[in-house]
Amino acid sequence: MNALGDILPGFSRAIVRGDEPPGQINSAYPKHTVSTAIDVYRNNYLGNLHDALAGAYPVVGQLVGNDFFRRLTRAYIGKNPSRSGNLHHYGEQMAAFIAAFLPAQQLAYLPDVAALEWACHCAYFAEDAGTLDTGKLSRLGQEHYPDLVLVLHPACYMVRSPYPIADIWHAHQPGAPDDFHIDLDGGPCNALVIRNDDSVIVGELDDAIALWLSIIQNGTTLGDATAGTLEKHPDFDLQAGLSRLVSQGVFADFLVKGLP
């Protein structure tokens, strides 16, 4: 145990859990009590985490309204302590939390909207990387294509849902028209999140290329991913799909399995 190990855990539990503050804390101050001091820290603690969640999940906030969102964040904070000094890392478990949050059960699409918002949040803060060098790719002998392993750009994410989450997301962006209509039974959505010129863009992929990309994301070779996709979608057009993804900057690089 280090120099401060005898005091900080108790102080922490007083803030986070409302436990009795440790006795080493002075009890007399000119105009306030220890309880008020702990209350200020607790308010800061809850407020900072709430604000972090509100920053990462603006669409969820609009969909459920301020009061419900505050209930949701309070419950989330109670179950999911922060693990990072960087507040932008806070909120990763929100989609799973909403899925299990009883008061939100009627909004079946909400967990997937949250997953899309988290993907957008991560894309915004992701590291920079180059995009796949098509010249280098075209110089590669065609016999290597089946063994290509494509590396996704760190700001690229895909979120697949049975609900039209991309439409919901677009309808709740600043400046979007108020008179939107979204058909919740309008079929599944494969939302693709990319960063273009520093802006986070949400687009959609058809089922075949989405399946292919989901296999590629696991590090599977181009040959195996394509074979796996063709089993389910015999009309899958690899060349069209791949060139679209490459032009959108989905890939940062490639390597060839078995080559140094």
């Binding site: 855990p9 986070v16 800061n44 985490l49 922060s82 000094g85």
Partner: peptide, 20 residues
């Protein structure tokens, strides 16, 4: 300080000013 026992409190918290 801002963390104890794996929980981060994203705030600026005081501690006792000792030699240790």
């Amino acid at each position: 300080w801002n963390s104890s026992e794996g929980t981060v409190i994203n705030d600026l918290l005081p501690f006792p000013y000792t030699q240790a």
